[in-house]
Design a protein around this nucleic acid. Structure first.
Lengths: 185, 185
DNA sequence: ACGTCTTTGTACCGATCGGTAAATCATGTA
DNA sequence: TACATGATTTACCGATCGGTACAAAGACGT
């Protein structure tokens, strides 16, 4: 009874990796079946809505992870600590740019329209909660939102750049610079 | 005789749009045929190498545009002018984040491996040429490369963020901030 | 008008696509 | 042991995938 939910949850990380590597269109059911070690039958048993439901579940799973490990600390802890936790959390989560941001990737092509709400919620909350932390740390209200947007954009761009140049040091360098921006000025 | 090349060139913008909207895997031959108004026969006549050759041609075409409109001005003009031209050029080229960066999108999923050289060359040259302009404008050698990377990453991230939030004002705001970074500090 | 070379439309190929259906298997309970 | 319920395997569906073959049509110099 609890096992059904548990097993579905257990598959989400592998499922997420397929979507990350191949994108929504490139993630074929055959590939998903292989990566999750679940046959087609089981797959459609756990996700009757097909690929769309799988992607939706993965997006929710990612969102949950960020909620617990990034967003909530930004809200609850002291600004400096929350922000420091965000940078280190992001760096290890994205494996220095070797692992991409699933939500960011979905935002780029036409699959964005299919999952518009989940994508908007993820980035909207990130910018909002980081902006609030910045305000609490003394950044002027007029600058906080702009600085939050610059930072989130910078992280997403760092992933693109690091993958393009195949240089994870570049990812760390950009994040280091961003870290200086939010604590310095 | 010259017409053959000319027609192939004429199709590249429409071809690029298909890859932009659907990604490499999502850009089916049927969709490409429809967008370019070229039948399968003509398509494989102009691009005997199939989809891979089409994508390669599009990447080269994009590269050429940036070479002429962004990279070379950064090299040839005064640093401030070249940089200003870069920002305004990028803003109109990406249509305030409504149009994505094809090269950046390719860098994210597994199609990166297929076109690794073209992708690396594009971003490598961008960072390099922007870094050189920054050095000429007086930025310390130690900071120029880092600032260039931050800027290019910021632009890529701004596209992601603007599309995710469906807010082109956000794109302009991030670019405005980046503009201040490279001229200010 | 002719022959040549480029361009196009169309039919077709095997493979794979996402998804369905139903039979079978495993498991826990009464 | 008998039964119910959840989980899995397997075969199959029509549609579409990327790509090929080839003949008809068009363009063009002579």
């Amino acid at each position: 009874m609890a096992r059904v939910v548990a097993e579905r949850e257990d598959v989400l990380p592998a499922l997420a990796e397929v979507f990350r590597r191949h994108g929504f269109e490139g993630a074929s059911i055959a590939r998903i079946s292989q990566a999750t070690k679940l046959g087609k039958g089981s797959l459609y048993h756990f996700f009757p809505g097909g690929k769309d439901e799988m992607a939706e579940a993965v997006l929710a799973h990612v969102r949950d992870w960020f909620e617990v490990n990034i967003f909530r600390p930004l809200e609850d802890e002291a600004p400096q600590e929350g922000i420091a936790r965000m940078f280190s959390g992001v760096e290890s989560y994205f494996r220095s740019g070797q692992r991409i941001c699933l939500v960011g990737a979905f935002a780029l092509d036409e699959t964005r329209d299919r999952f518009a709400e989940a994508i908007r919620a993820y980035f909207g909350r990130w910018v909002e909660v980081l902006g609030a932390a910045l305000r609490r740390s003394g950044v002027a209200v007029a600058d906080a939102d702009r600085l939050a947007g610059e930072t989130v954009a910078g992280i997403q761009g760092a992933i693109v750049l690091a993958r393009a140049l195949q240089d994870e040091e570049r990812f760390r360098a950009v994040l280091e610079t961003l870290r200086g921006r939010v604590s310095g000025s």
